Computed example of a mutant assay.
Amino acid sequence: MSNQTSVTEFLLLGVTDIQELNPILFVIFFTIYFVNITGNGAILMIVILASRLSFCGPNHVHHFFCDIKPLLDLACGNTELNLWLLNTVTGTIALTPFFLTFLSYFYIITYLFLKTHSCTMLHKALSTCASHFMVVILLYVPVLFTYIRPASGSSLDQDRIIAIMYSVVTPALNPLIYTLRNKEVRNALNRKVRRWL
């Protein structure tokens, strides 16, 4: 059976018919590609360096899942390079969208205060931002706390609590936060709470 595809050129060339935008689009897509290759290479380096470590003590990871930091705690050799590379990669991966999110919040809030003259519109926009901001905080703070803080100040108990918060509490609260923005859901919840009390 022969190929029945009618596309004969690169798919993204159809993004725009304006020839002047092609170099800009090329730079954007090349940058995304380069960042992905660099990040994957750094993650591969972490895996290779961790696989070359020797483990002489107990082989039980005291964590809810096999994360790299508790695994490095079991190693007998020097793990400074591993921790440095891990903190660099995870810090970059976590901090870049974190700061871009805060930059967008700064832009939105600045625009709202400078251009919006209606208090009801401002209140509605800020309440939408507040619920999204709470979800962003619940998502990023545990990640930043786990991977950005120095290894000397970390304990396995703190790491396990943070892991529970990141993997259980945040996904459970995310739909709840967005659902409570609905007026009907809030009223139904208020009626249930009054019945219990």
Rank of each mutant, 00 (worst) to 15 (best):
Q4T: 11
T38N: 02
A42G: 09
F98I: 02
N187Q: 14
M165I: 12
I109H: 06
E80M: 06
Y107W: 12
H117G: 10
P58R: 15
N190R: 15
V185Q: 11
L49V: 11
T5K: 05
L173P: 04
L122K: 09
Y107N: 09
R186W: 12
P150H: 02
Y33W: 14
I43R: 07
L86R: 02
L189W: 09
I93W: 03
N22G: 05
F10H: 01
A50C: 14
M1G: 15
I32D: 04
A94Y: 07
S167E: 04
M1D: 13
T96V: 13
L173S: 06
S152L: 02
K69Q: 13
V141A: 12
F99D: 00
Y178E: 09
T96L: 10
F145K: 04
C76H: 05
R52Y: 05
F26N: 08
L173Y: 08
L49W: 07
Y178Q: 13
F99C: 05
I162R: 08
K124W: 04
S2W: 07
H132R: 02
K183R: 09
K115W: 08
L81W: 03
S131L: 06
S118V: 04
R191H: 15
I108F: 11
C56Q: 15
T5N: 10
L44D: 04
C119F: 09
L173W: 11
F55C: 04
V7Y: 01
V185M: 12
R194E: 15
T170I: 01
N87D: 14
L13T: 06
F113R: 07
L156S: 13
F64K: 09
P175H: 01
E80Q: 09
C66P: 05
H62C: 10
A172Y: 14
R149T: 11
P150A: 09
I32A: 14
M45T: 12
W196V: 13
Q19V: 07
V169S: 05
N78I: 01
N82L: 00
T90P: 00
L44G: 04
I43Q: 06
F30H: 08
K124N: 10
C119I: 10
L72D: 00
N36G: 05
K115N: 05
A172C: 12
I48L: 10
S2Q: 13
K192H: 13
L197C: 12
H117S: 12
